[in-house]
Write a protein that binds this DNA or RNA. Structure first.
Lengths: 120, 120
DNA sequence: TGCTATCAACAGTAAATACTGATATTACTT
DNA sequence: AAGTAATATCAGTATTTACTGTTGATAGCA
């Protein structure tokens, strides 16, 4: 019960980057990780990776207060990780694009990473 | 200048997971993201993805205070993301294993993710 | 034109987290 | 044995961030 996915990446090969460039890179990358670092925000993202949902649906699925769901959606929106489409009096949220949702769906299927501890 | 890597994953296919299981999964996954969410910790991890280093080397490479580097290494250690090997009076840190360092090296080579904003 | 559902923004509080400086510990060096 | 280099821990402060309750705005519905 496993499969193989492919990710196309900029080549990093054996090339060493300067320390300074690695640190610059960390600064650019950290906000994305931060957006996924909160378990409630991550739950929202994973739920959206299945299919688009309204705020109300997210509120029901997570059991969180509506105001808290909106609160978490705001930074995801600002980072461009999710997009909004008004529909009637609802707001339908979707993951931004496949470039993001594909890896997220992959993560959603990862076997429990907590049990990774002590692997080496 | 790009290449394709393969990741073998537990099958997530089209199967919808229950909301509850997705939320459970988020709880298990969030700590790993949290460990990478701080730009200084991420810098340390990316530096270690190139090769193992002592605390002193990490301190020099990052420009951070030694005590702060040690402070950040502690949670990475507890999560099992890095491992320590005493060598002389130094402590050599390495990324835990290939399962982790391979994706991290890939990330280190990703083109700037900040410019992702507004893609869709 | 009220009425209600859906959502976002605001203000305040509580809690977590990053940082600093000082200190203790261990292992080399002379 | 004394001195020093390398590191971790501890206590304290500052900052960030998550959360709650209230309120205001918009859009459908009766």
């Amino acid at each position: 019960m496993s499969r193989t996915i492919e990710l196309t990446l900029t080549d990093v090969s054996a090339a060493e980057h300067s320390d300074a460039s690695v640190i610059e890179h960390a600064k650019g990358l950290a906000p994305q990780f931060k957006a996924l670092a909160d378990e409630n925000r991550l739950a929202i993202v994973l739920l959206l990776s299945e299919h688009s949902r309204t705020v109300r649906e997210l509120t029901e699925a997570t059991g969180l207060a509506q105001t808290l769901v909106s609160h978490h959606l705001a930074p995801l929106r600002e980072l461009g990780l999710v997009s909004v489409t008004p529909k009637g009096r609802s707001n339908v949220y979707s993951l931004c694009c496949d470039a993001f949702s594909a890896p997220m769906r992959a993560l959603a299927g990862l076997s429990n990473p907590v049990e990774h501890n002590g692997c080496c």
